[in-house]
Nucleic acid binder design. Structure first.
Lengths: 188, 188
DNA sequence: TGCATTTTTTGCCAAATGGCAAATCTTTTC
DNA sequence: GAAAAGATTTGCCATTTGGCAAAAAATGCA
């Protein structure tokens, strides 16, 4: 819970009373490895802050190939923003790569918070914008690189993540086959 | 100017008086092909709505290779969001692919508008979030695909853009060499 | 129009990556 | 602790893409 509060406070000030309001809204849920947090076709009803574990966001392209968009590890928010904020069916899956502990808000929770905490909406907007921007900046450099540089960059940027994620998921994230990734790993 | 107003109204209601306020703030600037709208190392001071022409956002990776992040064509906003909203030095260049006509707001303009138009900030936030989301969704599928599919998808998604952009820029956007793109073009 | 410049296409070959199936290793389950 | 299920590595070869330089085409400009 502390992690969540710290995270929020990086984006805006919250006094003790406001922190209590937030804490009271949060629900804790546990996912087992492989469980879904949200699914394509359904409307995203909640936002999760990952307090333990790793989530994976993926979808199927028009050739039915599974594409991993990104991973969400501890102390980060997970949500299909488009689905959640516009209440339209999602086009992606969010699943637990391993057992996870999530702190969850519903849309209603957030709405109530925005009515009781001045500046809450601005804070949430900042978080959304920042994390979207992070995604763009993380993905877009990958296109110019070959597979081994992509892997090297990933290692550099997320040193602890690589060992915690099955190779097949990482390969799908990097846009290469798992055999290729395995070979790349061997030669480095 | 109509284009801008239409664009804004897709994200929130504006009455005639508010529309006037917006129109009064806008400055029109022209860029010649190759001119910069903003540059790496400098702080982004303004936002542009592209009313004619195409802009290109790019940066140099650690191997000094020029990587095109994306193109911004007519009826879309261009801004280095991170630099603009946090007033930190930008890490990317925005340049005119061809002669351009831009409708420009400064940070001060936007601030004043947020003080005179109720809901302006929310509207701007929606626009930011939507366009960031678009970027993520546009870039992330590319990783799973081979070069020709990436080109094919680009054509499908931006049918009119391909002929208006030099091949070298498009190649850099697709993450392939220009020779490869040329060959791909021939065989399709 | 004609020259200079820029952009695009090609050829040739090397290097990277993919596809597929079998062989190993690991982990889980009973 | 064995068997089963799952994950990773490897071999073999086909295909894709890159690198580099030269040729061809398109564009700009005097």
């Amino acid at each position: 819970m502390e992690g969540l509060i710290n995270y929020l406070c990086r984006f805006g000030q919250l006094n003790d009373q406001q922190i209590e309001l937030v804490k009271n809204k949060v629900k804790i849920i546990h996912l087992n490895k492989g469980d879904s947090f949200s699914e394509a076709g359904k409307i995203a009803r909640q936002v999760a802050f990952v307090s333990a574990g790793i989530l994976r966001v993926f979808y199927y392209n028009n050739k039915d190939k599974e594409i991993t968009r990104y991973f969400i590890d501890e102390q980060n928010f997970a949500v299909d923003l488009h689905s959640f904020s516009d209440q339209v069916p999602s086009s992606e899956y969010i699943q637990a790569v391993m057992d996870c502990r999530l702190l969850v808000f519903t849309a209603a929770d957030l709405k109530e918070l925005s009515q009781t905490i001045v500046g809450w909406e601005t804070l949430i907007n900042k978080i959304s914008a920042t994390s979207l921007l992070e995604k763009v900046n993380r993905i877009s450099p990958m296109l110019g690189e070959d597979a081994s540089s992509r892997y090297a960059n990933f290692l550099e940027r997320f040193p602890t993540l690589a060992n915690r994620i099955p190779l097949s998921f990482l390969a799908s994230y990097l846009g290469i086959t798992q055999s290729s990734l395995s070979r790349i790993r061997r030669n480095s």
